[in-house]
Structure formats: C-alpha cells, structure tokens
Design a protein around this nucleic acid. Structure first.
Lengths: 188, 188
DNA sequence: ACCTGAACACCGTTCAAGT
DNA sequence: ACCTGAACACCGTTCAAGT
C-alpha cells in the first residue's frame, strides 16, 4: 500500500477510498493480470494439450509477478477475467467428455495446483536462503538411511529428478487423468 | 520473531543466535508439528483409505496452527518428521502398486495440495473480509450470463456444491487415481 | 563466546482535520 | 463529499556495546 501510494504521489491513507484493504487490492490486480492468460485456438492440438497450455500460461503470468502468486493462493477473485478463465477450463474439460460434476470440482484443484506451483517457484528464485533450503532437502533425501527410511533411500534420485517444467507438465496430466477417473459423490 | 522473543522474556535480537531468519524458524516449528501427524495401522482399511487418513491428519495439523499453513507452502522442510511422512506416503503408494517413479513425483503433489487446502481454509475462517470474498464469488458464479459464460451458468450449483470436507476427500481420491494412471517421462 | 538494547527500515490501517 | 498528514501499532533484521 505504501509503495503504491508513493508511486501515485500521495499518502497511503488515500488508497482506502478505493479499496478496503490489501487483500482487495491484490484481488483486483490479480484479476487484471488474468486477462493476459493465453488460450490456444481450437485447431491447435487436442483438448488435453490446450488445457495444459492454458494452465502453463496461467502459472507463467503469476510467476512474472512474484509477489502475487502467494496472495493468489488465498485471494478469492471474482472478477470478469477470472470468470473467463473458469469458463475456458470448463469448456475444455467438457470437450474431453469429463462429466460436469467432476469438471466443476476439478477446475478448483487445477487452479490451486497451478497457483501453488507458481508460488513455490517464485519464492525459490527470489529469497537468498531458499536455495540453501533446497540443498538441505536434497542432502537429507540422498543421505536417508536404508534402515529408517528404506523407500526414500531407494527412490532418492527419482524424488529429485526432472526439471520443474517436466514435473509441472506431469502434474497437469496427472490431474486431468484423476478428474477423468474420479466420480463425485453427487454424480450417482 | 518479536512475539516469540517477548514470550521468552528477551529481545528479538537474541533469537538470531539460534535461527538465521523467520523462514528457518517456521521450518523448524513445522517439522516439530509434523511429528503429530497420525498414521493409521496396517489392519485398518485398504491403502487408499489409509493414505487419505494420513493426508487428512496432515491438513488438520496445519489447520490448527493457522499461520503456519501459509508458510508451509513455501518452506522446504527437511527435518526428521518430514522424512518420516514422506516415507509413510511412499510406502502406502507402493502397497497400492504405484510404480516408483510415479510415487516419487506424486508425493510432492499430494503434500502440495494438502498444504494449499489447509492454507485456504485457515485464512477463510480467520480474516473478516474473507467471507465477503467468498460471497462475492458465489454471487458472480450464480449470476453469470448464459451468453458470455454458458458453462458457468449451467454448472453454478455444482461449482459451489459440497462441504469442504467432501471436496477435500474427492481431491485426494482424484490425485491418487491420477498418480496411478499417469506414467512419468522417465518410466519408459 | 554468548547475548541484547536500541536503532533502522520497513509494514497496514485509522482518524481527525483539512479543502 | 472527497481526500490526506500524521500517528498508531505493528513487523524482521542488524550491530555496536555489554557481560
């Protein structure tokens, strides 16, 4: 708030005429940003590929504005661009023959994972200590004792394998398959 | 840091003898808390049910300490209790016949979703404005025009349906199915 | 060596007072 | 009615000075 106020050559109090608090400001900026999420045309790849592209573009947008990804995990946007994004995802899932109930609940999770992924990466390459944390985790996994943690010991390489991009792509495919294969309690 | 220092009857500077920064403090507290995650005995339900129970207990623990859920999304713990939890999840997935590579990548996503879910709920019932945000979203979905957002218009009820608990359970089942059905690029 | 008081450089939010 | 200066109540982190 203070930084924005300074940019606008005024005191921070003035902003409270337009927004109720920081969360509302974040939500407004977020919705604006969602307008820039790319969405590939219908003739380009099947529905899975296009769905993946939309989600990847979404994480890309959040990632560009590091700070926002964190608040997006908690901010419940309800602006026009958010609705457009949800509509787009529902349409793609419908194209893939996903039952409506599963699509409805699935959209939430798709966006949650996409947002959390962006937040994780954003923090990881900003904060200085984050790299150390990751090193510590890698070290802990690689040095896990076969006696106390046999599974980790034998899977250490796999746990750390793959580029962030590859893991994200797998994550989206995995979610799509899960949504496709899991009936909701109401869809009897 | 200041609150903790006060609790310990000292100045905030003293804490920096034991931790490097707030993130490190959060990570340490988090690992301690992970020691209280319940994990059902082998004779109680099949592997899916037990996996679900562990994850539900994990979100419960994070939810109890509201503030921590948010930092857990970003903190990369590497303590003993974290390793125990990962080992437990890997063991359950192996019991279900999930190929090792998929299990390794899947554990990450399971914990990510569980953490993000806890963080969302924690914020939602704390901050005063959060309820308003949710109302605004519900209103936006229910009043979506059939012209511009036909999918949302016809699925509004389903998008908002279900208790948080029911949706979380479905989410875990969906993830398990996804992990089970999605080969990793390396598992040729 | 181990600890810490005091200061530095920030925050978000409120409210009385201005125009 | 619309705006804002100044203050309030917080943060995390550093560092010179103490024991």
């Amino acid at each position: 708030m203070r930084r924005l106020a300074q940019e606008l050559d005024t005191g921070p109090a003035s902003l409270y005429v337009y927004v109720r608090n920081t969360a509302e400001l974040h939500a407004a900026v977020l919705d604006e940003l969602l307008g820039t999420v790319e969405s590939p045309p219908a003739d380009q790849g099947d529905w899975r590929e296009r769905l993946e592209k939309v989600l990847t573009s979404y994480t890309g947008v959040l990632f560009e504005y590091r700070g926002l990804a964190q608040s997006a995990l908690v901010a419940r946007p309800s602006g026009e661009h958010y609705l457009n994004l949800v509509e787009r995802l529902l349409t793609l899932l419908d194209e893939g023959g996903v039952p409506p109930g599963q699509a409805a609940w699935g959209v939430d999770l798709l966006l949650q994972v996409a947002t959390a992924t962006a937040a994780e990466h954003a923090v990881q390459d900003r904060a200085a200590g984050a790299q150390d944390d990751w090193d510590a985790l890698a070290h802990a996994l690689q040095n896990a004792s076969g006696d106390t943690h046999p599974r980790i010991a034998s899977l250490a390489d796999e746990l750390l394998a793959g580029t962030p991009k590859a893991r994200m792509t797998w994550g989206f495919q995995m979610l799509i398959n899960g949504i496709l294969h899991t009936p909701t309690p109401t869809s009897t």
